[in-house]
Design a protein around this nucleic acid. Structure first.
Length: 580
RNA sequence: CGGGGUGUAGCGCAGCUUGGUAGCGCGUUGCGUUCGGGACGCAAAGGCCGGCGGUUCAAGUCCGCCCACCCCGACCA
């Protein structure tokens, strides 16, 4: 491939809105170009990388017996309506109608469609297990695309679906995919680790995400510094010391005047106590508008995914003024319902809402809101003065004890490059997808789903494989294997020599980008470093004179001279025996 | 969807406070000289100053509305 013909030019400076190092390099190296917010065109260089990433995934999927098929991008509404996702995906999906007015969605994902085909193709247990996958565009009207290809509104995903008879079969396929994912990411140079993740509200108890640690990651991950515990923040828990017996000498709860003091900060400074000695009470509501009160220590943060799971809802929001009024809450002075004080008269009845008490609330006296303007209450003893359902809805934080071994946990950022998920019978039950079992009964198909985002993988490779000069592609996914740079001079022998070498390398099936541009050496070297092809070969008057070729690996500083007679076989062995 | 920011030549930016001829660097085109780490000279092309409306003799600059893009938070591969 002649570089002068390459569609897409390198940029000396990155556009100012490219913020992450990888995004800047992705744009500068002509991997992809933005078309609109969250919509990117692969340029030829990037598309070659994407195809190699796909091929690695394909090989590893095939290896565990998954079969490739292809489901359309445009999907009819009827299947989504069967599971109710026609409505729940409304805010985040692209939709259209045909000329007859029928509704369609650009596939947000493809579970419903796979399940539809499965119920038609699979009638008997004899046809199970089955596993299929495809590479297909997903359309997601993300509210906030970011960081180049990391989060976009249209992207190719490899999504695989396993279908089996029972949990045991599902489990086997799940772990087969887990193994395939580990190999897949390793092959493309991604150091991905599997962490437990939230299963959302679609049933199933196990899900893993494959995460690559990098500061540009959107997810926060909790690791134990002592054992192998690792989990997404959305799922992570911490060890909580078993509740100590309630201290017996706690005075009765007493209202105190706190005029105008409505925040944790204000309370800590005016009462001279620490945030951890305060109780904060949050009012949240679920999708259907039910309001719940959550009591947690003043120094802890609410974890919304955990709360959603407790409430079995797909969305939670902070309550608004109307909600406050409806449950009898006073903004700034909200607290758990203190039954005794309410009965005795000094305080109003309290909240008319379901009360959840976070597990991090200890059995010791706290200061809490009184549900009365300008008033708090001291010596509030959980269990004695109020009761609620104990739930774990707080964020784990740096230094908390590990739930597994009690060691300290640490928090890092990561990019989710893949996830695997056991749905179980969830979709089959919604879509009446059953098979005839050996015992003559109809049973639901057990379902698992497994996704990898291609563009995100490519962007993550760049984010984790670069230096100040440019990208450093792992050989397996590099757009080309060899970058051949002739340093032209008056002496035509350089051009002749380079072009003969090019032919020989290409004849061996090696992928070569040939920089035939009439530019100065500095420009060529700088572009070569930017584009990041693993092996750079330089042919110049100097090397021709010595009957040699200069070889430099992108990931090493030093270059070596290789005799002309050996260079082709040397490159062949460096790149590997793989032929097209 | 909440909060913040930015729109001026292909890219990076200045000009806006204080209204009066649209600029700089890089890149691009032509010619010449160079040729091992983003070369040099000469000449040139390239802008509806995001859009619409307003104020004004006069708007890139002031005012209003809209649009687009980016960043931070909540959701996803």
């Amino acid at each position: 491939m002649k570089q002068s013909n390459l569609f897409g030019r390198t940029l000396r400076e990155a556009p100012s809105d490219a913020t992450t190092p990888g995004t800047q390099l992705m744009l500068r190296a002509a991997i992809a170009r933005p078309l609109a917010a969250g919509l990117y065109t692969w340029l030829p260089l990037g598309f070659r990388v994407a195809r190699k990433v796909e091929q690695i995934i394909r090989e590893e999927q095939d290896r565990i017996g998954a079969q490739e098929l292809r489901i359309p991008v445009i999907t009819p509404a009827e299947y989504w309506k069967e599971t109710g996702r026609w409505d729940t995906l409304e805010p985040v999906s692209f939709r259209t109608k045909d000329h007859n007015g029928r509704d369609y969605m650009i596939g947000y994902t493809h579970e419903e469609l796979v399940m539809h085909h499965a119920r038609n193709e699979i009638l008997s247990y004899r046809q199970l297990p089955a596993m299929v996958y495809h590479f297909q565009e997903k359309g997601r009207d993300e509210e906030r695309p970011r960081a180049g290809l990391l989060r976009v509104r249209e992207f190719v995903m490899k999504d695989a679906y396993s279908i089996d008879r029972d949990w045991e079969g599902l489990n086997e396929q799940y772990w087969a995919q887990h193994g395939a994912y580990a190999k897949t990411f390793a092959r493309m140079g991604l150091d991905a680790i599997s962490v437990e993740s939230d299963t959302g509200n679609m049933g199933g108890d196990v899900a893993h995400e494959f995460q690559v640690l990098t500061d540009v990651g959107e997810d926060r991950l909790v690791f134990c510094t002592n054992c192998d515990y690792k989990a997404n923040m959305e799922k992570a828990t911490r060890k909580i010391e078993s509740a100590a017996a309630a201290p017996s000498n706690v005075p009765a709860a007493t209202p105190i005047a706190t005029p105008g003091i409505t925040s944790i900060d204000a309370l800590t400074s005016s009462l001279k106590i620490a945030p951890k000695d305060l109780l904060k009470t949050l009012l949240m509501k679920d999708l259907t508008g039910n309001v719940v009160a959550i009591v947690m220590p003043g120094d802890r943060e609410l974890n919304e995914p955990k709360l959603r799971k407790v409430l079995k809802t797909s969305d939670v929001k902070f309550a608004n003024d109307t909600d406050f009024a409806a449950v009898g809450a006073v903004p700034g002075y909200i607290g758990p319902t203190l039954a005794t004080l309410a009965e005795q008269g000094p305080l109003p009845l309290g909240l008319n809402a379901r009360l959840l008490v976070d597990a991090s609330v200890e059995t010791r006296p706290y200061v809490a809101g009184a549900n009365k303007k300008d008033t708090h209450v001291r010596d509030v003893l959980p269990g004695r003065d109020f009761k609620g359902e104990t739930v774990d809805v707080h964020d784990v934080r740096e230094g908390d004890p590990c739930p597994k071994c009690g060691g300290r946990v640490t928090i890092k950022r990561g990019v989710e490059v893949g996830n695997i998920f056991k749905f179980g019978p969830y979709y089959a039950e919604k879509m009446k997808a059953t098979y005839l079992a050996e015992d003559g009964t109809h049973k639901p198909l057990m379902f698992g789903s497994y996704g990898i985002g291609i563009g995100r993988a490519v962007q993550t490779i760049i984010e984790t494989h670069h230096d100040a000069r440019g990208i450093i592609w792992p050989l397996a996914v590099a757009p080309f294997q060899i970058h051949l740079l002739p340093l032209f001079s008056k002496d035509e022998s350089v051009r002749e020599s380079a072009e003969v070498l090019l032919k020989e390398l290409e004849f061996m099936g090696l992928e070569v980008l040939y920089d035939d541009r009439d530019d100065s050496p500095g420009v060529k070297f700088a572009d070569a470093d930017l584009i990041g092809i693993p092996f750079r070969l330089t042919v110049s008057a100097r090397t021709v004179k010595e009957n040699a070729v200069e070889l430099k690996r992108r990931d090493e500083e030093k270059a070596t001279l290789v005799p002309r007679g050996e260079i082709v076989s040397k490159m062949r062995s460096l790149v590997g025996e793989r032929r097209r």
